[in-house]
Amino acid sequence: MSARRRIDILEGQAALSAWLNGESSRPVTAMAVRYTLEELAARAPGNSVEVRVPPFGVTQCIAGPRHTRGTPPNVVECDAGTWLALVSGGTSWADAVGRGLVAASGLRADLSAELPF
């Protein structure tokens, strides 16, 4: 089953493009983050990794064992700027993790194969 979209794809792409062009307002950033989280879930469906970009959104992705209660065993968390840089190719997974910009825990919490889009 594919992920359910809440963000219109064209609106999401427009927000990501605006963010990449320097627009950093909260509504644009929120739309870009939520759109890219939905895009990740669509490209890598599953429930084994939880990706958190507070305060804007969270998604589950990557095929594997499903998590049902408590803290997920595979969690990725970062701020909005880091997330959008990762999905757009502005920074690499290895660089972001190495600089401590991404907290990734669990065996499946490496998103380098999924990013950038």
Rank of each mutant, 00 (worst) to 15 (best):
S2P: 15
R6S: 12
I7N: 10
I7F: 12
D8V: 11
L10M: 10
L10C: 03
G12Y: 06
G12Q: 03
Q13I: 13
Q13R: 15
Q13Y: 03
S17L: 11
A18F: 07
L20R: 12
L20C: 14
N21D: 13
N21G: 11
E23P: 00
E23M: 09
S24K: 15
S24H: 15
S25E: 06
P27T: 00
V28N: 01
V28I: 15
A30F: 00
A32W: 00
A32V: 04
R34A: 02
T36C: 13
L37K: 02
E38Q: 10
A44H: 15
G46S: 08
V49H: 02
V49I: 07
E50T: 15
V51L: 09
V51T: 01
V51P: 05
R52P: 01
V53F: 06
F56D: 12
G57F: 02
G57V: 00
T59F: 04
C61K: 04
C61M: 13
A63P: 00
G64L: 01
P65L: 15
H67S: 13
R69S: 13
R69G: 05
G70M: 02
P72Q: 13
N74G: 04
V75Q: 09
V76R: 03
E77N: 05
E77S: 12
C78G: 02
C78M: 12
D79T: 03
D79H: 02
W83M: 03
L84T: 00
L84W: 00
L84N: 03
L84A: 02
L86G: 08
V87W: 07
V87E: 08
V87N: 01
S88E: 07
S92K: 02
A94Q: 11
D95K: 14
D95V: 14
G98E: 11
R99K: 13
R99V: 06
R99N: 14
L107Q: 15
A109G: 03
A109H: 05
A109T: 10
A109N: 04
D110N: 14
